[in-house]
Write a protein that binds this DNA or RNA. Structure first.
Length: 486
RNA sequence: CGCGGGGUGGAGCAGCGGCAGCUCGCGUGGCUCAUAACCACGAGGUCGCAGGUUCGAGUCCUGCCCCCGCAACCA
């Protein structure tokens, strides 16, 4: 028995949760549940990133104070875990007093790598925003929105010596001490690191970004939101003094989307190194999800909320789709047709029916008695390997091989024919194998479909089958569930 | 010359040097324990285009075309 720590990224609370983040929660949940199943002590943290200009802006639009606005949205992220039966046991908000205090503490500890520098950039007073050097050049020094020249502005900021750790990070990644999966992401990061990291500005002027954690000892500056948000992965454990931190860091797996890879493969490791802490053991980078082939966007009105997906077929069906039919190592697509097909063919017909026919035969031929069950004989190494490398889709495929194998077995053995012949011993043997196989399937399924696994296990618990009321996955008529517009 | 991913039967994908494979859909047959479910067999692809390396290329190299993301300090 050991300790296991898995994290999701903490979503920015400028908008409601959508299925992209739901997927990330599911990935983490599978790992957490699997670890628990193997007897580990698990901390599974998620949370909300709540500071920064954009939240302040959205709050103002809603006529709320930033904190009140953040309260509202972060609550929706918290609810998401329940909606999806996600077993996270820590929810950290960057506005938690604990996080704020610890962030200040961390800043002080990082001080040796923080220096005051000048941020120089092109600024448009019309947009009240900086533009990049390239953009300024592309527009020939004139803001196209306001038709006035950009001003060159200098601003005092604190900088973090990211460049100092460039080489060490590269080494940690190449040696897999800090293991990034999938490989393509790892290669991407390596080439990024080889091209060199520059020091980054890690604070903002208070009058520019007022909603943030103050830089200790400088009333004029707030911490740059990203810098501070990354700290959540250790403040959630009570860094530096809490026992949880001592027991659970480094994280076993951190899960992020591909858009924030730079922060997690550059800034974050550098911060840890500066603090003298080990890097996470593994970073899993997932892709994005489209809806019916299109990128989700408000203007298209196709933003899909997790609740919409759960509604028609239930939580486990939703989990199943995201975990199996969205490729773990690539971008994926959500489609109602494919969800319906997966539900009917795989969950109802193959798995549900395998349970049903087994139960029915045990009842019919053996008055519900199962007798002694043989031990599981399925080779789980492919499954284990898939989970270790976060290939959730492959892991489920491996389970389904067993499901299909069971249906084939039943058709080959023909228990109904054996019953007719009256060979009771042989029949008992065959049916016992079926039950045992289903129990094993349930075991492997638990991290992915916890409710379904529990139901199957309940059926074969004693030496007498306990039929499920109704069916495991009732067949649905094809409904016209269109994407809910927003 | 910003970075990356991808183009394989109707759909979704695997294969990454040695007879082109899986799931769905479609067709035929079998079975009757089961949620009109299950099982078997079959049709369907010149593996984006053009060159090259090789005894042999979806698989390696070069060039081109087409999709899709990311980045440009918003987090």
């Amino acid at each position: 028995m050991s300790n296991y720590f898995v994290t999701t990224s903490i979503p920015y609370v400028n908008a409601d949760p959508h299925i992209g983040f739901a997927m990330e929660l599911l990935y983490a949940d599978v790992l957490a549940r699997r670890a628990r199943q193997l007897g580990d002590d698990v901390i599974f943290s998620t949370g909300a990133d709540e500071h920064g200009g954009k939240v302040a802006e959205k709050a103002a639009e809603a006529g709320l104070a930033p904190k009140a606005f953040a309260d509202q949205i972060s609550e929706r992220f918290r609810d998401l875990c329940q909606l999806l039966n996600v077993s996270s046991n820590r929810f950290i908000r960057t506005t938690d007093p604990g996080h704020e205090q610890r962030a200040a503490l961390i800043w002080k500890s990082l001080k040796k790598d923080i220096y005051k520098g000048k941020y120089i950039g092109w600024y448009c007073t019309g947009d009240e925003a900086f533009v990049t050097e390239t953009e300024a050049k592309a527009n020939h020094g004139i803001c196209p929105n306001h038709n006035r020249p950009y001003e060159k502005i200098e601003e005092d900021n604190y900088f973090f010596k990211l460049s100092k750790y460039n080489q060490k990070i590269l080494e940690a990644i190449e040696s897999k001490e800090f293991n990034i999966v999938p490989e393509t992401r790892r290669n991407e990061v390596i080439s990024l690191l080889k091209s060199g990291l520059e020091d980054i500005s890690v604070s903002r002027h208070k009058d520019k970004i007022g909603w943030g954690i103050p830089v200790p000892g400088d009333a004029e500056q707030n911490m740059y939101v990203w810098f501070e948000a990354l700290m959540n992965y250790i403040t959630v454990l009570g860094y530096p003094e809490h026992q949880d931190f001592k027991n659970f860091w480094p994280a076993d797996v951190q899960i992020i989307g591909k858009d924030i890879i730079r922060f997690h493969c550059g800034v974050w490791p550098a911060m840890l190194m500066s603090l003298g802490l080990p890097l996470p053991k593994q970073l899993y980078v997932h892709g994005f999800i489209t809806v019916e082939g299109k990128k989700m966007s408000k203007s298209l009105g196709n933003v899909l909320h997790p609740a919409d997906v759960v509604k028609p077929y239930g939580i486990d069906a939703c989990r199943y789709y995201f975990l199996r039919h969205v490729p773990s190592y690539e971008d994926g697509d959500f489609s109602w047709d494919r969800l319906a097909a997966a539900y009917n063919n795989e969950l109802a017909n193959e798995l549900g029916n395998a349970v049903q026919r087994t139960v029915s035969m045990v009842e019919r031929y053996q008055a519900g008695k199962t007798g002694e069950l043989p031990p599981a004989d399925h080779d789980t190494s492919a499954y284990e390997e898939a989970l270790a490398s976060c290939r959730f889709d492959k892991a489920i495929e491996d389970i389904w091989e067993q499901v299909r194998g069971l249906n084939q077995y039943i058709d080959e053995e023909k228990p109904w024919a054996i019953a007719k012949e009256g060979d009771a011993d042989h029949l008992r043997e065959v049916l016992a194998y079926q039950c045992s196989s289903l129990i094993n399937i349930a075991e492997l399924l638990e991290p992915f479909l916890p409710d379904t696994a529990a139901k199957i296990k309940a059926v074969f618990k004693g030496d007498e089958v306990q039929p499920i009321e109704g069916t495991l996955f009732p067949k649905h008529e094809v409904k016209n569930d269109t994407v809910v517009a927003n």
